[in-house]
């Protein structure tokens, strides 16, 4: 992979100054030489059923409002290093990250939902 494949100084959630490499399915975000998060687009994973994924992960995990849509539900599994969001049957995204705590996830990766009015 060439240097030109790396985007410097990108944002991810509340964090800034990260590096990023786009992949066919999403992107890999680096904090220095460590992987901060692997983002996989829901479009690349469909038609996976979110309910099946949640069941495989052992239940709903920690639930937060997602940022992708008014109906977005984010399920966070901090100790497994995984999160996924969906709007009903539509899988929106999956994140993989180094195992952490919910507090650290919220601080470093969580995106506050915007205000949806229509």
């Amino acid at each position: 992979m060439g240097e030109d494949a790396v985007a410097r100084g990108v944002e991810y959630g509340p964090r800034r100054g990260l590096d990023e490499v786009e992949t066919p399915t999403g992107r890999v975000v680096f904090d220095g030489d460590r992987v901060a998060v692997v983002y996989v687009s829901g479009a690349a994973l469909r038609p996976s059923d979110p309910d099946d994924l949640v069941a495989e992960l052992g239940g709903p995990g920690e639930e937060l409002p997602g940022a992708a849509s008014a109906g977005s539900e984010l399920h966070v599994y901090p100790d497994q290093g995984l999160a996924l969001s969906h709007d009903g049957p539509k899988l929106e995204m999956v994140e993989a990250f180094p195992p952490t705590t919910l507090g650290a996830y919220r601080e470093q990766l969580y995106r506050d939902p915007p205000r949806f009015v229509i």
Binding site: P24, T25, V38, V40, A44, L45, L57, L82, V94, A96
Partner: peptide
């Protein structure tokens, strides 16, 4: 080209990794 490659490439990356 991205969409065409995406589905095939990602299936086992995160979900499979977790399993």
């Amino acid at each position: 080209g991205v969409g065409a490659a995406a589905g095939a490439a990602v299936g086992g990356v995160v979900i499979g990794g977790h399993r």
